[in-house]
Design a protein around this nucleic acid. Structure first.
Lengths: 165, 165
DNA sequence: TCAATTTCACTAGCCAGGCTAGAAACACCA
DNA sequence: TGGTGTTTCTAGCCTGGCTAGTGAAATTGA
């Protein structure tokens, strides 16, 4: 099935892109993700707290503190006092961070827009629905937390279903 | 643009799925990826060496040795002598690993197949092409290794382009 | 044929980047 | 006002990467 093969390729490309980016900016993948998150939210006019960042990244707030220290030291992020909650903090991206991320991603985003717009009008709903339903597949609770007994489960089918990769 | 929003959702869902899976199998994400890789290749009738695994995962062979030790100890992978190269090794997944991964992913894969097949015949080439071109976008050398001067680049545009996230 | 080079997995030891536990400051509610 | 929950941060641990270097086997080329 060509569609599933293409999807797999996309996922690999996505992973590689993250790797290249974290390599090229020499910071780790989490920090890059954090930076992109802050910039995106900021662009949407929202503010970002350390807690929100921790939630998005799926790491603890303690780790987030360290992350903010790192990205502060490197001049990408800055802590500012939270306007309403004096316990909290607002995280903002520096101009330098904006510029750097922009330099690396703006062309890519432009191209992605073009690719999306190149999809024939008639197929667009199908493309969107396909992606939404795929996301649904991945979100579904198939990835059961407890896999049950599983002992002496049926032996591997030895072949056939390649799509596991 | 609905398509790009759907794409973003898919990427998030993918990330979350990996997290849940590594959480649920309590091993780290790399180990899960390794397991899936070995099983997929094995399913395709190929053999996997530590080096191939290292390349796929983007880690060093030294780290891969440790990884194989871990997954050996947990009973998921096994080293076997390489038939042709006596320096090397063939990595195989145990029945237990097959069963466990199967239990967690087979339903998901079945659903993904269904979703793919549910795409109207007429739109399929467009869906596939969209994904392929998106993969191309991510692969392209936009993610420049050296971002150039960048000093005092234009200030953040303050708004508009949300898709960075 | 056999010496030099390359490639393989592995060992030893380092360090970044996660984690948990706990503390201080503050918000919020009865 | 007092109690409770929430916020970030500090201190210290541990996993899972890394580099450097080893011995054995494959490969190359004179």
């Amino acid at each position: 099935m060509r569609i599933l093969r293409a999807l797999r390729r996309f996922r690999v490309a996505d992973r590689d892109m993250r790797r290249r980016m974290s390599e090229g900016m020499d910071m780790n993948a989490t920090d890059v993700d954090a930076l992109r998150f802050v910039i995106a939210r900021q662009g949407a006019g929202e503010t970002v707290t350390p807690r929100a960042l921790a939630t998005h990244l799926g790491i603890s707030t303690a780790s987030t503190t360290k992350l903010l220290d790192r990205l502060g030291r490197s001049g990408h992020l800055r802590r500012e006092p939270h306007p309403r909650d004096r316990r909290s903090v607002v995280v903002v991206a520096t101009d330098h961070a904006h510029a750097e991320v922009r330099a690396r991603l703006s062309r890519m985003h432009r191209r992605m827009m073009e690719v999306a717009q190149a999809v024939p009008e008639a197929s667009r709903p199908d493309v969107a629905r396909f992606l939404e339903e795929m996301a649904e597949c991945l979100s579904a609770e198939d990835t059961l937390e407890d896999a049950g007994p599983l002992t002496a489960a049926p032996p591997p089918p030895d072949g056939s279903d390649e799509p596991i990769g």
